[in-house]
Design a protein around this nucleic acid. Structure first.
Length: 662
RNA sequence: GCUCGCGUAGCUCAGUGGAUAGAGCGUUUGCCUCCGGAGCAAAAGGUCGCAGGUUCGACUCCUGCCGCGAGUACCA
């Protein structure tokens, strides 16, 4: 029986007793982990609630402690429970049978795995405009999304990962304007440039990063150039012309670069849905039709929105300056981004009534395939079934909460049976720079900016820490540390270890903050390998593993056997501190469930760190291999094994590997 | 104006209505006769923005206020 199941059984026992003894239907009751091991393993603060209910229903006043005493007996009948104590004003504290618990935990367990019938979750994340290199703010999105994907999988769900490519938007148009009018290049020139850059080991997306910043500055002083943007955008949207072909090349190359960057962090995708297909396959027309039919949107005959199709939004109150309704189709007949997004979301949920066509985009090194949408009918019959999620999670920053609310509402009006709950905006706050960090990067700040607590990163200004630059910095720093400790390892080995550490540092740094915390990026903190870091967690696991390298052959098996044969005697040997570690290490499954429920990856990150910390404490207090009492030694070995397995699993859920040594 | 988020130790942040509010960093002081010091231990540090309310019990829920941020485009 898993810990979760045990908790549920005990909860039900309490409910049952409340009904039988006091004739009270409690519905849901809370259980909690007591603040200290000495206080037990599971607590029910249920007697307070019961006392109130009894008074309400019978007028009889009962002491919560007396109520707890009566509940105590039934819980103690459970085979996994050692004893129950009534504490404080009426807490019901349950103590598990330590030996039985340990014997069971000593056998390795795996996560639930998804089957074809498991609910399908679609997670859309990354969605960097394909016109430049990704910066650290984009990485927060991807790491959050990717980690949530891993959390869902560990929870036994079926997951599809999408990275939306806005290949026909203004940001791509800006870079295309720059190529054509500033650099005076055509498609062949760009291809030549691309080859030259490759020789110089300059990434195409880095070149575009600078170009994008350059065109942003040019717009400021050149109105004529800025006018080109609308013209270029129109040509790109229309498709089937030289400008659109050039734009497609630029966007595709940037996507290729992006996928490489993300692969360095262990982040992968199943499908790249592109805006160009949403346009050309007329997804919007279909959604528009449905929305009109169902009366979800209305055509404004008068007022300032005359000639537009709008969706009423009643939770906001408008005034002269701001409108409460959201325009989906402009008076010139052009659909807004939010409109297109509703169509895309309907497709993700499988209720649009249209589908994309798909073609191969690329393979990862292990031959896992990435697909991209296309307009042409595909001959390939082995295309996976994309879309049609039971739940769709959109990882998008919090500034887009309003349009996301509109999308959610629009979709639920078109498909009430799916409702608003099927669309989840997994929102998060920005990664910004401290003014000092921005100046460190060589940016000249205005006096106004200098006074601010943080400066927003801006691709348009070229202000930001590029993802690859930062990963390189972490790689270098980690390599220097590895050199110090393992000068004799091979060069490949050292690089490999350094990179695992670098990825751990970056991912953990971005995951330890809860989603709605604004991160002010600090180089020193983000580059740290000490304290609450990924490295700390990896280090604990590596040390745990090194115990088992030194343990005699078959030592672990022998320890487990000793434990299962001596269950009765174990209780004396399992002291509180060791027991605290065993129970903590048994809570990964529960933590993952919580994390899914709250859509909050930071919960798993915090858990992992706490487990690593608890292991270090254990490690310093016990000499495991030299322990002379065989029974105690077995307990220590089993505890270390449970911990390292859980720690490794938890880190993997965070997308962090455990190196052989470090 | 309205909507949403935030305000907790010097700094950066955790904290499903429950027991004495916790970490990391920083500061001070200890710990390698070793299964790895990228570590461990101890000390100092708090009016949980303010004021009411609900509750047996509030950092947590409700109301009002103060401060900060974001959104509120016929941009994407």
């Amino acid at each position: 029986m898993s810990l979760l199941e045990l908790q549920q059984t005990l909860r039900e026992k309490v409910l049952e007793t409340a009904k039988n003894v006091f004739n009270i239907e409690l519905g849901q009751i809370a259980s909690e982990v007591p603040p200290k091991t000495e206080l037990g393993d599971l607590a029910f603060p249920v007697s307070f609630e019961l006392a109130k209910r009894i008074k309400q229903e019978t007028g009889e006043k009962q002491n919560p402690r007396a109520i707890a005493e009566q509940l105590k007996a039934t819980l103690e009948t459970h085979e996994a429970v050692d004893h129950v104590e009534v504490a404080g004003a009426g807490y019901l504290n349950v103590f598990y049978k330590r030996s039985k618990f340990l014997a069971q935990a000593a056998t390795p367990k795996t996560f639930k795995t998804a089957t074809e019938n498991s609910p399908k979750r679609i997670v859309e994340h990354t969605a960097v405009n394909p016109n430049k290199a990704a910066h650290i703010g984009h990485v927060r999105n991807s790491v959050l999304g990717d980690t949530f994907v891993r959390i869902l999988r560990a929870n036994g769900d079926r997951v599809e990962v999408q990275n939306y490519i806005d290949n026909t938007g203004v940001q791509v148009a800006d870079v295309v304007v720059a190529f054509i009018y500033l650099e005076k290049m055509n498609l062949d020139d760009i291809k030549r440039l691309d080859a030259e850059l490759a020789e110089k080991h300059v990434s195409f997306d880095y070149y575009c990063w600078d170009l994008y910043a350059k065109v942003g500055q040019e717009y400021e002083k050149n109105a004529e150039l800025k006018a080109k943007r609308a013209e270029v955008l129109h040509l790109i949207e229309e498709g089937d012309n030289d400008t659109a072909k050039l734009a497609d090349y630029v966007a595709t190359r940037n996507v290729e670069c992006l996928l490489k960057t993300m692969e360095r962090l262990g982040i992968r995708y199943d499908l790249l849905p592109r805006e160009s297909e949403i346009l050309h396959l007329k997804f919007w027309a279909k959604a528009f039709e449905k929305m009109k039919e169902l009366g979800v949107i209305r055509f404004e005959m008068q007022g300032k929105n005359a000639g537009c199709w709008v969706m009423p939004f009643d939770t906001h109150t408008g005034n002269e300056e701001f409108d409460a309704d959201k325009i989906l189709v402009k008076s010139n007949g052009i659909v807004t981004y939010t409109g297109k997004d509703i169509a895309y979301q309907l497709w993700k949920l499988g209720v649009l009534g249209l589908d994309f066509n798909y073609r191969h985009f690329c393979f990862y090194d292990d031959r896992k395939e990435v697909w991209v949408t296309t307009t042409e009918e595909t001959l390939n019959r082995n295309v996976p079934k994309f879309g049609g999620g039971d739940t769709v999670y959109n990882v998008i920053d919090t500034r887009q909460s309003y349009p996301q609310d509109i999308v959610k509402k629009g979709v639920s009006l078109v498909s009430p049976e799916r409702g608003e709950a099927a669309s989840v905006h997994l929102s998060y706050d920005m990664v910004t720079l401290s003014p000092a960090a921005a100046e460190e990067l060589g940016f000249v700040l205005s006096e106004e900016d200098k006074k601010k607590p943080f400066v927003e990163m801006s691709g348009r200004k070229g202000l930001g820490v590029k993802a690859d630059d930062f990963i390189n910095l972490l790689d270098e720093k980690a390599l220097a540390e590895v050199e110090k400790r393992h000068p004799d390892s091979s060069k490949d080995e050292k690089h490999k270890i350094a990179h695992i550490i670098a990825v751990g540092a970056l991912r953990y740094f971005l995951l330890k903050f809860t989603r709605n915390t604004l991160i002010v990026f600090d180089f020193k903190e983000a580059l740290s390998f000490e304290g609450e870091t990924g490295c700390f967690c990896q280090y604990s696991a590596v040390r745990a593993n090194s115990i088992f390298r030194k343990l005699e052959e078959g030592g672990l098996g022998k320890a487990v056997e000793t434990i299962s044969q001596n269950q009765v005697n174990l209780s004396e040997v399992i002291e509180d501190e060791v027991w605290a570690l065993i129970t903590l290490a048994s809570r990964l499954e529960e933590t993952i469930a919580q994390s899914v429920h709250a859509a909050e990856p930071a919960i798993v990150a915090k858990y992992t760190f706490n487990l690593a910390k608890a292991f270090n404490l254990f490690y310093h207090h016990h000499k495991i291999l030299s322990e002379e009492n065989e029974l105690k030694r077995s307990v220590l070995i089993a505890t270390a094994d449970i911990t390292r397995r859980t720690l490794t699993s938890a880190l993997n859920v965070l997308g962090i590997e455990v190196p052989e040594r470090m």
